[in-house]
């Protein structure tokens, strides 16, 4: 129950990080299952969107395990994964408004994560802030 100390790499999974890792874990599970079903059953409908779904799933899994492992190395992995996640949600979000015909079926990141209550947009920002806070 000690407060996270600044030099302790395990801090990312403690305290509020406990909730953050679980949120990431649920998104990892959901994104992986969703991408798996999309690619297995209807890949030809929207290959770009479904490949992006798969990329998002990999990023969420990497971020979840890296935050949960909470070592010095995994902190770096988490930072990179979450940075890519933020770029992804902003990029895909903007792109899905600009060229909607390429996104007939939503990915997690389409329309800035609107289909998931915009949590995909808020999550990487919280993740990066948390990594900064526990540095």
């Amino acid at each position: 129950m000690s407060a996270p100390t600044r030099s302790d790499p395990s801090a990312t999974k403690r305290g509020p990080g406990r909730i953050l890792v679980l949120v990431y874990g649920v998104f990892a599970l959901a994104a992986t299952a969703r991408a798996g079903v999309q690619i297995a059953t209807q890949f030809s409908d929207a290959p770009i969107a479904y490949l992006l779904s798969a990329v998002a799933a990999v990023i969420y899994c990497a971020a979840t395990f890296a935050l949960a492992k909470a070592t010095t190395l995994s902190r770096r992995v988490a930072t990179i994964a979450i940075a890519i996640e933020l770029i992804g949600v902003l990029g895909i979000g903007a792109f899905s408004y600009a060229v909607p015909e390429d996104f007939p079926d939503a990915t997690v990141w389409s329309h800035f994560g609107q289909g998931y209550g915009f949590v995909p947009l808020v999550l990487p920002i919280l993740g990066l802030l948390w990594l900064r806070r526990t540095r």
Partner: peptide
């Protein structure tokens, strides 16, 4: 925070 995580 354990209880908080469970709430989620």
């Amino acid at each position: 925070w354990g209880a908080g995580a469970l709430a989620f």
